[in-house]
């Protein structure tokens, strides 16, 4: 079997074409695959569809999906925040969204997580109580089950998932640390090609306890060890 370990982030993202869908995990800046995002920014793929909890922050030092949006590489976002948390926080996404330069779909965070999980779990669609009675449920199929009303939601698939992990072995078995886990394992399962940046040395198979693996290596295709700063991005 071909080795999954790549030497650089640029090599790991070099073949990503235009017009693909990519999942970007992370929550409050933790568990964000910043090195892979920076490499894709250098690589320049365009027409991307992004799936991410938010659409970037104002922190210019720390690359995130907002870096790709600002560079005009993204045509559509699925996210739980499509307006700023405060009117003064005008990100590149907010500016472009208001100017109709980027498309977006606002998805409740739990519905987004379950749509991603459903994609990785072979589920065709599911009914959720979230958003019933709000404008986000308008036009969606409703169904009453045991007296409670639900709306139908469909899976979110992706061509690629960029993942940030704490530990990995050469087969791609992964461990995450604390709230770094967030969307990482479910996005890895929902994508055709999963690319991982990892914070520790990639260890030989057999060194990670099989009972303590958060994502099985069968879901992982490419792994890059994050080099020390300033080469690697550690924020």
């Amino acid at each position: 079997m071909k080795s999954k370990v790549y030497q650089t982030f640029d090599q790991a993202v070099s073949d990503i074409p235009n017009d693909v869908t990519i999942m970007f995990p992370g929550f409050s800046g933790i568990g964000v695959p910043r090195n892979l995002i920076a490499a894709l920014h250098r690589q320049g793929a365009k027409g991307l569809t992004g799936i991410s909890n938010n659409a970037g922050t104002l922190d210019a030092k720390a690359p995130d999906v907002g870096t790709l949006i600002e560079a005009g590489q993204v045509k559509k976002m699925y996210c739980a925040f499509t307006s700023p948390t405060h009117p003064s926080r005008v990100t590149a996404f907010v500016r472009m969204y208001n100017n109709n330069e980027i498309e977006a779909e606002t998805v409740p965070q739990g519905t987004m997580a379950e749509r991603i999980r459903a994609a990785g779990a072979g589920i065709g669609a599911f009914y959720t109580p979230t958003s019933v009675g709000t404008e986000l449920a308008e036009g969606k199929e409703h169904r009453v089950i045991n007296g409670r009303t639900y709306v139908l939601e469909y899976p979110l698939h992706a061509d690629y998932a960029f993942i940030r992990a704490w530990k990995a072995d050469t087969f791609g078995n992964l461990q995450f640390r604390l709230t770094q886990r967030n969307f990482n394992p479910i996005m890895a399962m929902a994508a055709k090609t999963t690319i991982v940046e990892v914070e520790n040395d990639v260890v030989p198979m057999g060194e990670l306890d099989p009972d303590a693996i958060h994502l099985p290596g069968v879901y992982v295709h490419r792994i890059v060890r994050i080099p020390p700063a300033p080469q690697g991005i550690w924020e």
């Binding site: 739980a80 925040f81 307006s83 409740p108 739990g110 958003s131």
Partner: peptide, 20 residues
């Protein structure tokens, strides 16, 4: 989560929590 004269909204996990 949303002010009508502003495009989009900041829903986060609020709808899931509120409903459930």
């Amino acid at each position: 989560w949303r002010i009508p004269n502003r495009k989009g909204g900041g829903i986060g996990g609020a709808m899931d929590l509120a409903a459930c």
